[in-house]
Design a protein around this nucleic acid. Structure first.
Lengths: 150, 150
DNA sequence: TATTGTTATACTCTATAACTATA
DNA sequence: TATAGTTATAGAGTATAACAATA
């Protein structure tokens, strides 16, 4: 949302808040570039979101996309129409239920998605400036926050 | 964009990429809640973005907002109209240039913004689970990435 | 004459309701 | 009868162009 870094100044003495503030600041620097990136690829926010969130490996039904995107089913129809027009996605029949249509990225859609991800999730330069040792420490600690951490 | 964590799997051996992957994963967890939060406050994405990005301390001109929001000036007129209708922002005359109108948050707008920020930038629980010692280490390293780091 | 902001207008995006096909 | 998806339609949001006021 805002390009401003986050964090409650009243809790600057809380190390968890301070850490989160620093993390959001790192992310805010990227976030401000999103509209430019989308425009450069000729994508509107909806198409960009769709392209990034369609599972590249497993086709999903229209209704599951409506759930994931939190929008009406009729809007999924419209959005997928736009992606199909650009050759980025395609509807496929469901192997068992003939009512269902699944959506998959085309080869072209895949390629665009990869390019898009590279720019959207590009690492901020600020991180690159840290020493190898600091980066390893960062990874070790942050790994503990991952859902699959033992 | 996507709720998926980011990072290039091909570079999993690069500690900077690994660290960034872990950070984006933390942020993705928050990002997925944004639509709910906006809906809960009765805000659409445009209004939420506007409320968060209007400088609470210094009124800005319509044209500067158009630049910041990367949209047409006529859309700023429309958007600010909506905020004014809800009593969240108000137009003010510019002290010297009578062509210019500046936009400022009302007291009500300020209050809503604060509430909004608290939810948007709420710290993920995963961070809270780290030890005091890990959090301090995190802060020490991340502080080096801040623009004002000596 | 150039710039700021608004208005008139059209186009894009999204939702609601009615409909078709299948289960 | 219920569900998946589309179509018809209306409404919200955004842009382009013409305009009024001021510099």
């Amino acid at each position: 949302m805002s390009a401003e870094p986050a964090g409650n100044p009243d809790r600057a003495d809380d190390p968890a808040e301070r850490a989160w503030h620093l993390i959001t600041r790192l992310f805010a620097e990227r976030k401000s570039h999103f509209p430019d990136i989308a425009a450069r690829f000729g994508l509107n926010p909806g198409a960009m979101h769709a392209l990034l969130s369609i599972d590249p490996d497993e086709p999903q039904s229209m209704s599951s996309l409506a759930g994931a995107w939190r929008c009406d089913a009729s809007n999924v129809t419209w959005l997928v129409d736009r992606l199909e027009e650009r050759g980025l996605a395609e509807r496929r029949p469901h192997p068992r239920d003939r009512r269902v249509r699944t959506v998959a990225l085309t080869r072209k859609g895949h390629r665009l998605r990869v390019q898009l991800e590279a720019e959207i999730f590009a690492m901020p330069n600020a991180l690159r400036q840290l020493s190898e040792r600091d980066l390893e420490t960062l990874c070790r600690i942050l790994a503990k926050t991952a859902p699959d951490h033992a």
